[in-house]
Amino acid sequence: MTKKVQKETDITFYIRRYNPEKDDKPHWQKFTVHVEPGMTVLDGLHNIKETQDGTLSLRYSCRMGVCGSCGMLLNGRPSLACNTQILDIAKKVLTVASLPNFDIVKDLVPDLTPLFEKHISIHPHILRGDSGEMLNPTGEFYQSPDELTGYLQFTYCIKCGLCMSACPTIATDPEYLGPQALPQSYRYSKDTRDDGFNQRKKIVGDTHGAFRCHYAGECSNVCPKGVDPARAIQLMKRQLVWDYLKLRRRRAKSPILGKPEGVERIPEIPEPPPFTV
């Protein structure tokens, strides 16, 4: 495989600026940045902020595609600024804007509140029928590697909001739960330690739930972690339909594995601390 040779060059950044305290509507501002191979869009924006305009607002944290803070619209495609190299997507011009389908806090900072509200609404945690075991655990919930594989892909979501900004359904129905919350609903319902399907199905099977998705698939195209939200939504639909037809397979609950018997604790290993909650 031949390696692509990239040369340093000047790139024109068109950045969509918006300060809700001063501006009536967003406007474009032009900057020129000298770009070297390997520079990410986040590096370029830092360069602009340090050398050209310190008022530019952007959000970032980890700089390595893990935290999901720096989602932006780069040349029309929702992407993470920290793991997108400038010369990979631009030859002369690069447009940078805040994520669509979200309100703008300032410049390149989207208001992700709807994402987190929708995420919370689907109960994104293990729900158990046996509350006694949850409050006073006697062991661990066992899960086989195969059972883990059934939902593992969907646990990689970093809540960056790229999927929701690419979703054409959210563009017309802001109340639609969207490709972040719905796959997380599937992720927990598929988890063998979870009993919360009946609670979640009322939310995801409602007017703004899974059946609003018409499988445009853009969420999966833009996901930086390969979560494939579109697939998860279709699997969620299948679960809902099987449940409505009373054909959903009742799976066995995760067995609780108690402490091993006949084994002495190694004295050097301390006991776990007592529960605080």
Partner: peptide
């Protein structure tokens, strides 16, 4: 759940 019912019958 109403949408689940509508969609299932849509498929049928």
């Amino acid at each position: 759940m109403r949408e689940t019912r509508y969609w299932t019958w849509h498929i049928f």
